[in-house]
Amino acid sequence: MRPFIYERVSDWAAATQAAGGGASAPVSYLAGGTTLVDLMRLDVMRPQRVIDINALQDGRYGRIELGQNGLRLGALVRMADAAAHPDVRHHYPVIGQSLQLAASAQLRNMASLGGNVLQRTRCTYFRDVSYAACNKRNPGSGCAALAGVNRMHAVLGGSDHCIATYPGDFGQALIALDATVDLISPDGARTIPFAKLHRQPGDTPDQETMLRPGELIVSFTVPAGPWTRRSLYLKVRDRQSYEFALASAAVALDLEDGAVREARIALGGVATVPWRAADAEAALRGKTIDEQTAMAAADAAFAGAQGHGHNDFKIELGKRTLRRALRQAAALEI
């Protein structure tokens, strides 16, 4: 690990000031540390200053608030606390489950929600700096995964420059439910759709988010909707627990007399970013969920998918995961 200057801040102004546009050297925020310390130890991330923002926890960064219009989750809320929160579990089961099925109890105690959505890919060729070719680490160096061992890699949203999978789970729940992200920086506060937070790799896979230098996630707001209660997160993996998804689906349904009024669908483990499956949602609108309509939705969701060898199976697996999730969500007793 490279040396860095460690600073603790107690208010956001000091934080964003320390990390903001004027900072001459690479700066990272430290919350749970489960991504940052990991990647610093691997020499992938080399911040020269680390701004510990955990002392911000007492403000709105650390709260979970349920209101008429939706759910507000502070960015410094720990995954475990959000997953266990009765309001989250009752009104937004897909959020609780996506957090609950991620990582381990220890990591969920540490990791913040803000850090969670910013976690970096698990691609070996990214995480091991001794591989020369990684456009995400070294723009222009190539992508070793394209013709490499890519069982865990993405079949949706990739490019000729990068097929690294977005590894998170919570992000799928957020994007499915049309969440927004509240941000703050020395330039001021702004709110953006969560769907706009992550960038597909395209030809700049090193640029993973739309965050500006020094910008800090304050909270997530998840709008209320008739679909949030009939929601779930299904995660398919080799192990029963403590593993990243091979394929996952976040599904929320608003049914009327068995027919779909609104469907909200996002896919994980198969895409380069939290992946909203709008085509699948459209395919379901007005339909009753059965084997055939679920299959049609799954086909729509993966219409543009592309495998790269080892991960070819994820197209079929992803479809089956979505089919299973839809059938399960439709059958939920609310």
Binding site: Y6, R8, L30, G33, T34, V37, D38, V50, D52, N54, A105, Q106, L107, N109, M110
Partner: peptide, 13 residues
């Protein structure tokens, strides 16, 4: 009182 992994916890933090 909460379980954490000490390897990813910076001592200073």
């Amino acid at each position: 009182g909460r379980r954490v992994v000490s390897c990813l916890t910076l001592a200073v933090a």
